[in-house]
């Protein structure tokens, strides 16, 4: 409690910048997507390119001085191509090499070694030809299969949109009870026994929103909202309003009118004259 109070006092008078989910379309996104986004972008991924030190403190060998251990991860780069591939947590590292004590540092990029291979998803019953790294294959082997690897690994380690999209598909397939094995109920029950433990971590809504990039999610919610609304032409709206007003004024002619335009009691030829671009035009 005390630390919370201290924190809030510190925040007093400080302008809080609006976050991704506080403004614009981002504010409309559901809680399910926010949870995924936290797992994807705001969680620390597994240390692949460095060996983190364990423990809280270490002692200087010579002086015996205690120094706290603070593991600061190496900054990693993810080119946009990686979203179509499975790198298994690897990344590009930009940095310098110091090849000699008396030489100036030299810029250097460490790239992962990529190769094309095939992965097989048991749940989807499909083979995928994808670009992978050795680490991906090793992780698949260590987890006893691609499905286990994808379902078990958090989004921060899968990283690429391809892997996350596959994860969503696999989860949806499991939720639906593996329709790809329609003819074989034995295999369906085996798969359910094998993989349904992973479904416990997600609600149906969370699966629906899993694995979209922020832009994709925004476009998705926009589309959903547009579909939800029914478009009504202004002329019908204004007409109904006008009739309401006239009724309020208790005009006799208006009392006989219905609110809907197509059921209007007016003479059809008279109406047709008023609408200039109607399809049927009598001469």
């Amino acid at each position: 409690m005390a630390s919370n109070a201290v924190q809030s006092v510190k925040k007093l008078g400080v302008f809080e910048r609006k976050g991704l989910f506080d403004k614009g379309v981002g504010a409309l996104l559901p809680e399910a997507y926010k949870k995924f986004y936290k797992e994807w972008k705001l969680t620390e991924p597994t240390a692949v390119h460095y060996i983190p030190e364990v423990g809280k403190w270490k002692r200087d060998d010579l002086t015996g001085e205690a120094v706290p251990i603070q593991n600061i991860p190496l900054p990693l780069l993810y080119p946009k191509e990686h979203n179509r591939q499975l790198w298994g947590g690897e990344a590009v590292i930009q940095g310098f090499q110091l090849r000699d004590k008396h030489r100036r540092r030299v810029p250097h990029f460490w790239f992962p070694v990529l190769k094309r291979s095939v992965v097989y998803s048991e749940v989807l019953n499909k083979f995928f030809s994808v670009i992978v790294t050795d680490r991906t294959i090793q992780l698949i082997n260590a987890n006893y299969g691609f499905d286990h690897y994808i379902l078990k690994t958090p989004a921060c380690d899968l990283k690429s949109l391809l892997a996350l999209g596959l994860k969503r598909k696999i989860l949806k397939e499991l939720e639906a009870g593996c329709p790809s094995y329609k003819d074989d109920p034995v295999i369906q029950s085996q798969l359910a026994e094998k993989y349904n433990k992973y479904l416990e971590a997600y609600t149906s809504d969370e699966i629906d929103w899993y694995g979209f990039s922020f832009t994709e999610a925004c476009n998705r919610i926009k589309k959903q909202m547009e579909e939800g609304q029914q478009k009504i032409a202004f002329k019908h709206m204004y007409r109904a309003e006008l009739i309401d007003k006239l009724r309020a004024a208790k005009l006799e002619e208006a009392m006989g009118q219905s609110l809907k335009s197509n059921e209007s009691g007016l003479d059809p030829t008279w109406l047709r004259k008023m609408i200039p671009f109607s399809k049927k035009k009598e001469t």
Binding site: H49, Y50, L74, I93, R135, L139, A142, N143, K152
Partner: peptide, 20 residues
Amino acid sequence: SILLAASSLIQQQIRTTYIL
């Protein structure tokens, strides 16, 4: 979730890349 807890199958850290 069981995501982070279900690491029983992976016994040890796998590294197949540059370690810096």
